[in-house]
Simulated assay, not measured.
Amino acid sequence: MSGILDSVNQRTQLVGQNRLELLLFRLNGRQRFGINVFKVREVLQCPPLTSMPKLNALVRGVAHIRGQTISVIDLSMATGGKRIEDIKSAFIIIAEYNRSVQGFLVGSVERIINTNWDAIMPPPQGTGRASYLTAVTEVENELIEILDVEKILNEISPLNTDVSDEVASDIDVGESADKIIFIADDSSVARNQVKKALTALGLQIEMAKNGQEALDRLKEIAAETGDVTDKVGVLVSDIEMPEMDGYTLTAEIKNTPELQKLNVVLHTSLSGVFNQAMVQKVGADDFIAKFHPDELATAVQKWLKQQ
């Protein structure tokens, strides 16, 4: 087990080209889940948890780790399952999402697997936990479920999606006001957060659930006019998506003549270290950590004006 934990801690800086590394874990049952290693700061045996008044029922307590107080969320309870009872033998995955650090209580941690984004697929319809999944993949003939962590976090502590009055009053996209802002994100919560922030500014929105769906639709739009920027002003894309990630989507756009003028803003819940060299390599125009509506609105205005 110590080898697994050491490996996680050493590899959190790594971003692959259309490649994904998943840390596999279990909650209460046999089902295995995965979390992107790039989001993980460290994994450790669950330390003593301190109860605090008025905590959300899904938060089992707080842990004091390396001088920082971290809320610990029971992932089993958060996805509609039973609480993890044996905390002493459980583990905490310390991860960074949306500019904050959280601890996720899990029953056990297994190993890291390497796979490609095109092997990560949208979740099947009709499964009981489907509303908490962003993707699935298969490992050794077993389905691995990838949780929509942004949805879980938003249910516990909803993010403000309103653009401030000060920023809203300064937004002026001029002649580009009638152009579509295209959003690509596998999390329904994240898509709706972006949509709410930008539609409040009077902007038109179109959305896709992953990079492949976004690319296909952008090519359809381009086929109507010859250049996608005749109709689309800016693409706001997540990086981590099933079938095709945001890096690959950006590279495809910049290498396709009828799409390459489109400004791409990469928008990800990873809010710490990210691979700036990778962002530059694929030709993205901007990078914004989720989720700050004022920063998003300002960036969209900036790139609309440069169309």
Results as ranks from 00 to 15, higher is better:
residue 261 K to Q: 13
residue 257 P to K: 10
residue 57 A to S: 14
residue 240 E to A: 12
residue 22 L to R: 07
residue 222 A to D: 09
residue 253 I to E: 04
residue 19 R to P: 00
residue 114 N to K: 13
residue 41 R to A: 10
residue 133 L to F: 04
residue 80 G to F: 06
residue 172 D to P: 05
residue 242 P to W: 00
residue 141 N to K: 15
residue 214 A to D: 04
residue 147 L to Y: 00
residue 215 L to F: 15
residue 133 L to C: 02
residue 99 R to V: 06
residue 297 A to N: 06
residue 127 T to V: 15
residue 173 V to Y: 00
residue 131 S to G: 07
residue 95 A to V: 10
residue 151 K to V: 01
residue 67 G to P: 09
residue 241 M to D: 09
residue 303 W to V: 04
residue 27 L to H: 06
residue 13 Q to M: 14
residue 285 D to F: 00
residue 84 I to F: 00
residue 230 D to A: 09
residue 105 L to F: 01
residue 251 A to M: 12
residue 144 I to S: 04
residue 116 N to Y: 11
residue 292 H to A: 11
residue 254 K to G: 08
residue 249 L to F: 01
residue 168 A to L: 10
residue 61 G to T: 10
residue 289 A to E: 08
residue 265 V to H: 08
residue 57 A to F: 09
residue 284 A to L: 07
residue 72 V to C: 04
residue 188 S to L: 12
residue 137 T to L: 12
residue 200 A to L: 08
residue 178 D to S: 15
residue 51 S to D: 12
residue 299 A to K: 12
residue 176 S to Q: 13
residue 34 G to I: 02
residue 239 I to A: 06
residue 266 L to N: 05
residue 284 A to M: 07
residue 47 P to F: 01
residue 141 N to G: 08
residue 44 L to A: 10
residue 303 W to C: 02
residue 110 E to D: 15
residue 28 N to D: 09
residue 153 L to K: 10
residue 78 A to N: 09
residue 43 V to H: 01
residue 202 G to R: 12
residue 8 V to K: 04
residue 207 M to V: 13
residue 27 L to Y: 00
residue 31 Q to I: 13
residue 228 V to M: 07
residue 143 L to P: 02
residue 194 V to A: 15
residue 174 G to I: 06
residue 61 G to R: 08
residue 259 L to H: 06
residue 249 L to K: 04
residue 191 R to K: 13
residue 96 E to W: 00
residue 179 K to I: 02
residue 150 E to V: 05
residue 42 E to S: 11
residue 285 D to C: 07
residue 284 A to R: 03
residue 91 F to L: 06
residue 18 N to W: 03
residue 296 L to W: 08
residue 62 V to R: 08
residue 133 L to W: 02
residue 141 N to W: 01
residue 163 V to L: 05
residue 120 I to Y: 00
residue 125 Q to D: 13
residue 19 R to C: 11
residue 2 S to P: 01
residue 152 I to D: 07
residue 263 N to W: 00
residue 162 D to R: 14
residue 135 A to M: 05
residue 87 I to H: 11
residue 31 Q to P: 03
residue 62 V to K: 09
residue 236 V to T: 12
residue 262 L to R: 08
residue 130 A to H: 10
residue 151 K to E: 13
residue 193 Q to V: 08
residue 35 I to D: 06
residue 49 L to K: 08
residue 70 I to A: 11
residue 61 G to E: 05
residue 66 R to W: 02
residue 233 G to S: 05
residue 10 Q to E: 15
residue 184 A to R: 04
residue 51 S to L: 14
residue 174 G to T: 07
residue 182 F to H: 08
residue 102 Q to G: 02
residue 21 E to C: 05
residue 270 L to R: 11
residue 113 I to N: 09
residue 143 L to V: 15
residue 221 I to M: 07
residue 134 T to Q: 11
residue 209 K to I: 13
residue 267 H to W: 11
residue 22 L to H: 03
residue 304 L to M: 15
residue 263 N to P: 13
residue 242 P to A: 10
residue 94 I to C: 05
residue 146 I to K: 02
residue 17 Q to E: 14
residue 198 L to C: 06
residue 231 K to E: 14
residue 188 S to H: 12
residue 71 S to M: 12
residue 200 A to V: 00
residue 180 I to Y: 09
residue 145 E to F: 00
residue 107 G to T: 10
residue 122 P to R: 07
